[in-house]
Amino acid sequence: MAHDTRSDTLAGARNRPLAFPLGPGCGLEPHPAYARLREQPLARVRLPHGQDAWLATRYADVRTVLSDSRFSLAQAVGRDRPRTEAADWDQVGLMSLDPPGHTRLRSLMTKEFSARRVGRLAARARRAADELLDGVVAAGPRADLVGQFAVPLPLILNCELFGVPPGHSRFRDWVEHTLFASTVEELTAQTENWAERVTELLDLRRTDLGDDLLSSLVLAHDRDGTISEEELVALVVDLVAAGFVTVTGQIAASFYHLLIRPEALVRLAERPELVPMAVEELLRYVDLLDFTAPRYATEDVELGGVLVQAGEPVLTSLAAANRDAAVFTHADELVLDRAGAPHLGFGHGVHFCLGAHLARLELRAALEAALRRLPGLRLAVPEEDLRWR
């Protein structure tokens, strides 16, 4: 009697969803279960809220979901999306649109984030990093890497890009309170007043338009009518989250991984030309984003050994994909001069991180300055005493 093992696999995957997120790994390491999941067909997962979803963990599957037009971010709007919090809301920013709507909004900012435009900030980035380290050295020998360096560096550079005075206290207060929220409730409370803060920021630019990103967006709304007020506010919120929160986390986590490997710090100090490659490897290695926003299949798609049916959501784990041993040799090791396939730390496809050039610039400036100025850099407390948010 014939037996369809593929049908059994599909049925089993649908009937036994895993509780997700999987839980914390060890420190900043991805959860060890990801290694097992990469060896199996696409997993069915159940988050605390919303509908069940598929979870892609292999590099090839994640790239497919991020770049194939059959997987849609826009289709998530208005659905009971898989999520970790009870509250849900419809968004109008870049992460809730597919082309051509996504293309329309992204094109308004592409010039501001081009390699040429961002390159103009290189000298400012080096100067800002040195100025911050002046304060660290003066206050030493112990320092708060996050509060004294990882937070203010991207804040200074993004204010430069936005055309906002770095000392604009309301803006800085909003960013820092969002960054340091210790509970979901506190973060929600901070998020609820975002419209007021963003409107204030936009009004500030309207009084003194210049050659900066926020001025361009204000003109796109006020003069050209190419974006709505709702889209304008949503874009600024997206930029704040991506430009401050993620870069601050990446700087802090990158230094952590180097500080627990003193030989890596010594090597980079002796060979500073390796810093650009080290930044790319740290972007691969650091586990900042457990999973991305859900994308919905617009038609039946074979993916990772299962049939994803039209209307079903798929989550992708960039952290898991970046540790795929089928793509990266010694994937669980930090190899500062790694070459080969590109990491997925900035995503892939049409939603590839708009601020990738700026993030790379900030990370390089942070590493180069610290390696040059602080040759004896080390953890001030035992590794086991570090607290993670």
Rank of each mutant, 00 (worst) to 15 (best):
R205I: 05
R261A: 15
S182N: 13
V233M: 07
E192V: 11
V247P: 09
T191E: 13
Y256V: 10
R223D: 14
D173V: 06
G243H: 00
E185G: 11
D222C: 08
G243R: 00
I260L: 06
S182P: 09
A195G: 14
E263H: 10
L214N: 00
D222W: 02
F255P: 03
R261D: 04
G167Q: 12
W174G: 11
E186L: 14
T183D: 04
T188V: 14
G225E: 03
V236S: 08
V236T: 07
A252R: 04
L259V: 00
G210K: 03
F171H: 07
L259M: 06
L201K: 03
L217S: 03
R170T: 12
A195F: 12
L213A: 01
A189N: 01
V236G: 01
D212A: 02
A181E: 01
E186N: 06
L219P: 03
E231T: 02
R197E: 15
Q190F: 13
L213M: 01
A234T: 09
I251H: 07
D212E: 04
S254F: 02
T178S: 15
L239N: 04
A252N: 05
V164G: 06
L239Y: 08
S215T: 08
L217V: 01
G225W: 10
Q190L: 11
E263F: 05
E231G: 10
A181M: 01
E229R: 14
H177I: 15
E230G: 13
F255V: 06
R223A: 15
N193H: 15
D222G: 02
A253F: 14
L201G: 04
F180C: 08
L214H: 06
R197W: 14
Q190M: 10
S254I: 04
Y256T: 12
A195T: 13
P165A: 03
T191C: 15
V233E: 12
D238H: 10
I227D: 02
P165D: 09
E263A: 10
F255H: 02
L258T: 03
T183F: 03
E200Y: 05
G163M: 07
E176N: 10
V245W: 08
A195V: 13
L259N: 05
F162T: 09
I251E: 00
V240M: 13
S216Q: 15
A189Q: 09
A242S: 07
T199L: 13
A234D: 08
A242F: 11
T246H: 07
I227W: 04
S216F: 12
D211Q: 02
A252G: 13
V175F: 04
G167A: 06
L187C: 08
V240D: 10
S169V: 14
T191L: 14
G163H: 02
A195C: 12
F244Q: 14
H221V: 04
F171M: 04
E186K: 11
E263C: 07
S216L: 11
L258W: 00
D203F: 12
